[in-house]
Lab assay of single mutants.
Amino acid sequence: QGDIVVALYPYDGIHPDDLSFKKGEKMKVLEEHGEWWKAKSLLTKKEGFIPSNYVAKLN
């Protein structure tokens, strides 16, 4: 089961498979690959890669 993270900063995706998000948006982490994680937005239901240093895990 994936962790839920919250965006600390907004992110505008650079690549087509990036997931753009707004500050405060919550996402479910699907896979962790070093600095880039695959996640699904709980708001938009879209999936893509996010920079892990832009988010914090919720406990």
Rank of each mutant, 00 (worst) to 15 (best):
Y9G: 05
A39M: 04
Y11C: 05
V29D: 01
K22D: 08
G13R: 06
E35D: 13
K28M: 15
I14A: 10
D12P: 10
K22H: 08
M27N: 01
G2N: 11
F49Q: 07
I14Y: 09
P51H: 06
D17P: 07
N53R: 14
K46N: 09
L43Q: 09
K23E: 09
G24N: 07
K40Y: 12
E35G: 09
A7L: 01
D3S: 14
W37A: 07
I4Y: 08
K57S: 09
V6R: 06
G34C: 09
F21A: 01
F21H: 00
H15S: 11
E47S: 11
E32F: 14
L43R: 12
N53I: 08
L30G: 02
W37N: 04
L8G: 02
D18F: 13
K23C: 12
G24Q: 03
A39D: 02
P16W: 08
I4W: 08
E32R: 14
L43I: 11
S41N: 05
E32H: 12
Y9E: 07
K46H: 08
S41Q: 03
G2A: 11
W37Y: 15
V55C: 08
E32S: 13
P51L: 05
V55T: 05
I4H: 05
P10S: 15
D17T: 12
K28W: 14
K45V: 05
F21M: 04
G48V: 00
L30R: 03
N53P: 05
F49Y: 12
K23M: 09
T44R: 03
E25Q: 04
H33D: 09
N59S: 14
A56Q: 13
G2R: 09
S20G: 06
L42N: 03
W37Q: 06
Y54H: 10
S20M: 05
L42D: 04
G24M: 04
E47P: 01
K45M: 14
G2Q: 10
H15K: 11
K57N: 08
D3Q: 14
I50E: 01
P10D: 15
P16H: 08
K57C: 10
N59A: 12
K23I: 09
S52Q: 11
E31W: 10
E31V: 08
E32P: 08
L30E: 04
A7I: 01
V55S: 01
K46G: 06
D17R: 14
D18Y: 13
Q1I: 15
L43H: 10
K57D: 06
V6D: 02
G2H: 12
P16L: 08
V6W: 06
L30F: 06
D17L: 11
L43A: 10
L8N: 04
I50Y: 01
Y54K: 08
K57L: 12
L19P: 02
W36T: 09
V55Y: 03
K22I: 13
L30V: 07
E47W: 05
Y9L: 09
Y11M: 03
P51N: 07
G48R: 00
W36M: 10
P10L: 06
K28V: 15
E35K: 13
D12M: 12
E25P: 00
M27W: 01
M27E: 01
T44E: 03
Y9K: 12
W37L: 15
L58N: 05
A7C: 04
K38C: 12
L19T: 02
M27F: 11
N59V: 13
V55L: 04
Q1W: 13
H33V: 10
E31S: 12
G13F: 02
F49M: 13
L58H: 07
W36K: 11
L42G: 01
K46A: 10
K40T: 08
V29N: 01
V55F: 14
